[in-house]
Nucleic acid binder design. Sequence first.
DNA 1: CTGTACCCTGTCCGAATGGACAGGCGCCCA
DNA 2: TGGGCGCCTGTCCATTCGGACAGGGTACAG
Lengths: 216, 216
Amino acid sequence: MSEQIRILVADDHPIVRDGLIAILSTQADFVVVGEASTGAETIERTLALSPDVLLLDLAMSDGDGVEALIGLRERQHMVRTIIFTAYDTDERILSAVRAGAQGYLLKGTPREDIFQAIRTVHAGGSLLTPVVASRLLRHIERGTETDPEAVALTPREEDVLRLLARGLQNKEIAGQLHISERTVKFHVAALLRKLGAGNRTEAVTMAVQRGLLSLS
Amino acid sequence: MSEQIRILVADDHPIVRDGLIAILSTQADFVVVGEASTGAETIERTLALSPDVLLLDLAMSDGDGVEALIGLRERQHMVRTIIFTAYDTDERILSAVRAGAQGYLLKGTPREDIFQAIRTVHAGGSLLTPVVASRLLRHIERGTETDPEAVALTPREEDVLRLLARGLQNKEIAGQLHISERTVKFHVAALLRKLGAGNRTEAVTMAVQRGLLSLS
DNA sequence: CTGTACCCTGTCCGAATGGACAGGCGCCCA
DNA sequence: TGGGCGCCTGTCCATTCGGACAGGGTACAG
């Protein structure tokens, strides 16, 4: 049994964790060594347990799964990681891959494919579905960091975006952030340009679709 | 063993189904008699298997879990139903309760509470978390159907809302729907009024938050 | 020190937005 | 045969939005 793959399951839904544990337990070469329901727990348990593979949900209650992954990388912890998410449109998948995830799985994936994915990643391989793979390829082909699909918003732009989503108008946003209305328009214009949106409404929906913004 | 509660699990994520089956199987008085991954399957299997309790996800790949429930009610099938969803802000929860669901559970619910909920509902009780319960109470206290929280959009308004979310402006929406720009403004105004939004951007985010619109 | 990125501010202007009037047509139900 | 509702259309107007000019300040890396 020394060949078993030691797995840590990180997801904020008990059901999903139980589901993963249940189906992973049917495989003789898998053993789930721990669970985590928050980003902080994920870092802590990974450091403590040193699993072979980390199954990580992007939507953790205390912030982002990507943050947890970046936190681990900063601590030089190179656990092989599979992102486990409900949507393949989530921009954060790309962020996660950049942060060192070896692959990702949709929650709709058949269980056999999940087993195979874990074994592949554990064996040193990586695993991406066509959608993500093609987006990454566009990165490589262009050989550039300036990918219109992968915009990096500045902190201030995120502030404006958040208020934009709440339906505030420029003047109100200016009041909230203690800046002039003109400056708000400056940041809004930057958002439209970076997101490729034609107006503030489209900017908000596109940001949501890319996982840059969550409507709480 | 004739006292076992026969359960049908409907969710479009295999993992969630497996998770439910796994934890439900630990209870001697539960038996999962079937699974469904789409709304159509849910109706079909419920009619075929007549489970005691239906665990139903709101987000089914082929449309709405609520639709499946309404379809069952139209066929006079009164299976006791628990909605199983990730968000408690979803307007569809209220729709589901109106369609005859006895309760709902968040996917973040601890497994013991899930067991208890199933037994409660099977025993003829109902089960609502404080958030949903209070919203329903507001319905009853007001004794009215005109609940500002539960707006009913007309088909045309939904058309406009969908295009609004894509960032189209009035003139473009008019072209898409083959109506005048003025009429678009009429429907937009109706949306703002019904949703209580101050502008189109807020209307879109509020609609998404209430489950009236999904950003595909 | 020079470049670069981020943040902030201004004026001017055409276009889009949303509200306040007002009205017509078809359908269904009491 | 009303009345209600959904859907459609119009004009007028104040406000908002977004772009096209401009520019200045700070912080940090090479």
